[in-house]
């Protein structure tokens, strides 16, 4: 997800520059626009996870246990 998030943002930036300098046909820009809106929504969702991620600690046998800082 991390890599994908950054890729999505990069793609978003590319679409915006294309739309802004405007040398694209109307249908092409509409297609790009809808694509971009999808990306924005996806990125937003990824940032809106419901609960805090709990931090984990690796125990001796390699298992993950919850870890809270005192």
């Amino acid at each position: 997800m991390a890599k994908k998030f950054e890729d999505k943002v990069k793609e978003l930036e590319e679409i915006i520059t294309v739309l802004e300098n405007g040398d694209v046909s109307l249908d092409e820009s509409i297609k790009k626009y809808t694509e971009a809106m999808k990306l924005v929504k996806e990125c937003d969702d990824e940032l809106k996870t419901v609960e805090d991620k709990i931090s984990k600690i690796v125990s001796e046998n390699g298992e993950l246990k919850d870890f809270t800082v005192e």
Partner: peptide
């Protein structure tokens, strides 16, 4: 920062498509 960046993109997207149309 991330949220405001995304928001900024949203605005520029809408502006861009509006200008185009």
């Amino acid at each position: 920062d991330l949220k405001s960046k995304l928001n900024g993109y949203l605005i520029r997207l809408n502006e861009g498509i509006y200008k185009k149309i």
